[in-house]
Write a protein that binds this DNA or RNA. Structure first.
Length: 1023
RNA sequence: GCGGAUGUGGUGGAAUUGGUAGACACGCCAGACUUAGGAUCUGGUGCCGUGAGGUGUGUGGGUUCGAGUCCCUCCAUCCGUACCA
């Protein structure tokens, strides 16, 4: 029987499914082990070869743990709410649920093809009402809780209400919005609406008016981590700041705990660092500066400034440099700006604010170098010296961070320094030895000067002293600031979990009858009134009496926004433990038994999104006593991205400008101009006449330059003609032959490409020796034997449908089989490294599996001998048992594959077909290549799946050699080797080595200065 | 700018605690079998040199009997992040 992966793989996949081989037991004497992959969003593009990389590694790990006697929980599901299905619904009218199910089926079929050992009975889908019922329930827990700073945990809001009833809020120390003081009698006298409004200031899930990232094209708000470079991460649409009423989560209450928790979990350092940066803790002080009364508009210019009660609060990490403050800067959006600006400066300030507003976030970010600002005309008073400090505004100060205002210390902060230089503001030195000519001194080492009571202190001491003094004077206090903002929780979209809230008198109330099911709508677009798509639903009111959704107008309106993508993924790991429970989100027993995730695998791109939110929800649920642990995963592994190789084609674009003349109307202009074609490895320069309207492509092996500005004239009119190139992606299917290596030249099928791209059919494809046009090749020279190929340029980038560089695992499986795919993806290199997909080595892996199979077979017959194994055979086996075990435990999957190959090569050389060797070897290999292992296991006579076998124990004694081949080096350079008994002692080795004839010859009679013998390893002779 | 990571043959990569650098695989070269080879098998393959030998893990230095591995310097690439006061 020959090795036919396509046959045996299907059979075993069916066997596993039918027998529920990978079912995890809810109670077991075996120790539990939880191996989790980040579940995918089921996109329409299906899986590409990059997705399974992490899944394969986890699968190996899970199978290994089973063989090691663990009860393994290894589930998979779908993050099935999301934008693409909804965008598709908007375009086609197909309900997102239908698209989603179709996509899930594709994903499932693809995953089944690879032979994963998932327990599919535990599958979860976030868009399933039986699942999102509990997502909504958790939301209500967050709505019904506040964060008590004294206890440093979340508590039920009912405890807060009790406190309000008896003592008002004077003793309340909660993480909340600014709330005026009130007494118990105040509280008790208020009506329900007022009370509820106050409570909203305390709830962890709360409604707030806040600036959000609004994306008009997507018609929704985005979280900070969904915005990259001022555009949406998904789709790349512009994002603007907009003030909106929004559901938010007080994740900032957890900032410190999220930071502290990182110390105790085994996650990659880079990922932890990203979370630390995102949370952005900085230690410093809040300081208040009183604003000196600006000259009143009505008073004469010679009157003294009046005192005003206005204060500017700033956050600083360097309170020690307080005496170096020479101005203050407010963000242009700061609320005090309008109040303090003097009449003389009003025009300038308003002009500056208008200009700053007009600049998009993106421009502002791209243009960090330009210094701009304006003087308000107002002054603050220095709290210690009483000196007037001019107040400026500048867009280098961010409204969203700290207080939106800074005390500017140009001697100690580079941005303040640049601002001061630009506007000619003094730069007083406060640290000894600062050279402030070229730049600020941002060092935290140094001794204070010119600083009154701080003089002579180190920076560290001065910070403490300054804070102490400020606190004594009640003008400031020590403070820890976080960069992290509260997370916006609502999306103005259809395809997400409905937020279980209704509004009575404009006040939100919870809907406790769950699930609150997503209503049907006619259209998935926002309503004409600008409401989210749920505004299109006809039955979307709530009757609190009957606890039913009723027709609009017959009850109270229900919230129209839905939850963001991260809601469902913030707790799914819990649901897998108890996926069908209808009484609770997950039973206590299940959580006690399984505990948190032992091994969590996924992409590093989720560092500041999902992985922060899931930690937040976990800590919150722990606080309320719903779960027994406060981190979701003990260990986290980031698999590297498998990139695609895109085929780039250069297309020339002509920018035609003739004042306002339409560019098509070129009549009368001289219509032919010369293109200059430079060849990269010849001196020849060719001039090539083209029409300005022709579409031009150029092959990657030639270099073309065109005059950057060609002016065509017609009478007084001028046509300016400016060529630039863009790189387009060509589908990899349109290459004349597939790319085998990155360096290889790949020829494009010009005709097919043109049909596919629907570009100008007269397009010219310029090659080295001529050009293609209308299906014909025109040579530049007479010689018609020269190369006519048009080459693409390879480029490594993310694998994506839109880049046409996607490789589908199904294609690989069809050709080589799933076991080959699994081994090859592991063989590619370390799991965590990013690497471009190439199939260069896949033949080697495929050959290896055939060789492995052939150990058991002589042609068509299965032949395994019952003979006793030899020492060499046992050594090959046990070296492999040991190495693979160590490799899996340190997640070095690529090196195991090499070890398998070494072992098979050795057994092959030894002509070993002995059961005593092959049987345990099959168990070891079954983690990586389960199909072939199952097949051979059953041929060996086993009736039960190899899943229930035991990982073979390795025996060190088989690895011990009788003799050691000592490398003998002179001054560290290996010269020869001598075979010696392994048992020989250090001194004996030295004696024998020095007596060796060749060693003597090399020593030329001289005595060695020193001889180092490392028993079993090397001998080094120093001469 | 800051933070993290990585630099090893023609290529992907190995070398886990400082101990024969280049395992394993691809590619390439030679040979065998074959009607054929993009099948299979055997041998070779870091670089320079006919050879003995020399040389070699991004650069320069250091520690050590011995450094890909440890320390310092610089360079390059990738990823993340960015006016965070």
């Amino acid at each position: 029987m020959h090795y036919y992966p396509e046959k045996i793989e299907k059979e075993w996949q069916q066997y596993w499914a039918k027998n529920k081989t990978f079912k995890a037991e809810d109670s077991s004497k075996k120790p539990p082990f939880y191996v989790l992959d980040m579940f995918p969003y089921p996109s329409g593009a299906g899986l590409h070869v990059g997705h399974p990389l992490g899944y394969i590694a986890s699968d190996i790990y899970a199978r290994y743990k089973r063989l090691k006697g663990f009860n393994v929980l290894h589930p998979m599901g779908y993050d099935s709410f999301g934008l693409p299905a909804e965008q598709y619904a908007i375009q086609t009218g197909t309900h997102p649920a239908i698209t989603t199910v179709a996509n899930i089926n594709t994903f499932r079929r693809q995953m089944d093809n690879i032979g994963f050992s998932f327990d599919w009975d535990r599958e979860v889908r976030t868009s399933d009402p039986s699942y999102y019922k509990w997502t909504q329930w958790i939301f209500l827990q967050l709505f019904d809780a506040c964060y008590c700073k004294n206890a440093d945990k979340a508590i039920p809001i009912s405890q807060l209400v009790d406190e309000f009833k008896t003592n008002g809020n004077k003793d309340v120390n909660a993480h909340c919005d600014e709330t005026p003081l009130f007494s118990a009698s105040d509280w008790n006298s208020w009506d329900e609406a007022k009370q509820q409004t106050i409570l909203l200031n305390y709830r962890i899930a709360y409604l707030s008016e806040a600036y959000v990232n609004w994306c008009p094209q997507l018609g929704t708000v985005l979280a900070n981590d969904e915005v990259k470079d001022g555009v949406s991460e998904r789709g790349g649409y512009p994002v603007e700041r907009k003030l909106m009423k929004q559901w938010s989560m007080r994740i900032t209450a957890y900032s410190q705990r999220l930071l502290d928790g990182l110390e105790d979990i085994d996650w990659s350092e880079s990922l932890k660092e990203q979370q630390r940066n995102w949370i952005g803790r900085s230690v410093g002080a809040m300081v208040r500066f009183e604003v000196k009364g600006q000259r009143s508009e009505h008073s004469g210019s010679n009157l003294k400034p009046q005192s005003s009660n206005l204060e500017i609060e700033v956050f600083t990490t360097r309170p020690d440099t307080i005496f170096g403050v020479s101005f203050m800067t407010l963000a242009p959006e700061h609320e005090l700006v309008a109040k303090i600006t003097t009449a003389e400066q009003k025009a300038e300030i308003e002009a500056y604010i208008a200009k700053a507003k007009a600049r998009s976030d993106r421009e502002r970010m791209a243009d960090v170098k330009t210094i701009s600002g304006a003087f308000t005309g107002a002054y603050a008073e220095h709290p210690f010296t009483g000196a007037p400090i001019p107040i400026w505004i500048g867009d280098y100060v961010l409204a969203g961070y700290g207080t939106g205002a800074v005390m500017a210390v140009p001697s100690g902060d580079q941005r303040d320094w640049s601002f001061a230089k630009h506007f000619g503001i003094p730069i007083p030195a406060v640290i000894e030895g600062s050279d402030l000519e070229k730049e600020a001194n941002e060092s935290k080492d140094g001794i204070l000067k010119n600083s009154d009571f701080l003089n002579g202190m180190t920076v560290k001491d001065a910070i403490k002293a300054a804070i102490a003094k400020m606190e004594a004077m009640k003008i400031g206090e020590g403070k820890i600031n976080y960069r992290q903002r509260d997370a916006v929780f609502g999306r103005q979209r259809y395809w997400g979990e409905p937020i279980p809230i209704y509004y009575k008198d404009g006040v939100p109330y919870p809907i406790n009858k769950l699930p609150l099911q997503l209503p049907e709508v006619e259209k998935y677009l926002p309503t004409e009134a600008g409401d989210p798509p749920l505004g299109n639903a006809e039955n979307w009111n709530w009757n609190p009496e009957t606890e039913e959704v009723v027709a609009n107008g017959e009850g109270y309106p229900i919230e129209l926004s839905t939850m963001p993508g991260w809601a469902g993924s913030s707790w799914y790991y819990l649901r897998y433990m108890d996926p069908t429970n209808d009484e609770e989100f997950c039973s206590k027993e299940a959580m006690e038994y399984w505990g948190n995730v032992n091994y969590y695998a996924g992409g590093a791109e989720h560092a500041t999104g999902h992985l922060l939110y899931v930690r937040f929800w976990t800590k919150f649920l722990k606080d309320l006593g719903h779960i027994p642990f406060d981190e979701p995963a003990k260990k986290l592994v980031n698999q590297g991205m498998i990139q695609g190789v895109s085929e780039k084609v250069n297309r020339w674009i002509f920018e035609l400008r003739a004042g306002s003349a339409p560019i098509e109307n070129l009549t009368g202009f001289k219509q032919e101009i010369n293109l200059v074609l430079f060849e990269s490895n010849k001196d020849g320069v060719k001039f090539f006449p083209i029409k300005p309207t022709t579409t031009i492509f150029s092959s990657s092996d030639i270099r073309i330059e065109m005059n950057t500005k060609v002016v065509l004239k017609k009478g007084s009119e001028e046509l300016v003609y400016r060529p630039t190139t863009v790189s387009l992606n060509a589908p990899i299917s349109q290459l004349a032959s597939p790319r085998l290596s990155f360096d290889q030249k790949c020829e494009l099928n010009v005709e097919e490409y043109l049909t596919w791209s629907r570009d100008d059919e007269n397009a010219i494809f310029i090659c080295r020796n001529g050009y293609w046009q209308n299906g014909k090749f025109h040579y530049f020279e007479q010689d018609t034997t020269l190369d006519k190929a048009f080459y693409t340029q390879p480029e490594v980038e993310k694998m994506s449908k839109s880049k046409w560089n996607v490789v589908n695992p199904d294609d690989i499986i069809e050709r080589y089989g799933a076991d080959t795919l699994r081994l090859y993806e592991m063989f590619l290199g370390p799991l965590e490294d990013a690497k471009p997909w190439n199939t260069n080595g896949i033949e080697g892996v495929s050959r290896f599996l055939k060789k492995f199979w052939n150990l058991f077979h002589d042609g068509d017959t299965f032949v395994v001998s019952e003979e006793e194994p030899t020492k060499k055979e046992l050594k090959a086996l046990h070296a492999t048992i040991k190495k693979v075990q160590e490799d899996i435990e340190r997640l070095s999957f690529n090196t195991s594959v090499s070890q398998f190959m070494i072992c098979v090569n050795e057994l092959n050389d030894l002509k070993c077909n002995k059961r005593a060797i092959l049987e345990p070897f099959t168990v070891v290999i079954s983690t990586y290549a389960p199909h072939i292992a199952e097949e051979l296991w059953s041929q060996l006579g086993h009736s039960e799946s190899i899943t229930f076998a035991t990982y073979p124990a390795f025996n060190e004694s088989f690895l011990v050699e009788d003799s050691v081949n000592y490398p003998i080096s002179f001054n560290g350079k290996t010269r020869l080797s001598i075979e010696l008994p392994a048992s020989m002692g250090k001194d004996e080795v030295e004696k024998v080595v020095l007596a060796n004839a060749e060693v003597q010859e090399r020593l030329e009679g001289a005595a060695p200065k020193k001889v180092i013998v490392v028993p079993g390893r090397i001998v080094n002779i120093v001469v």
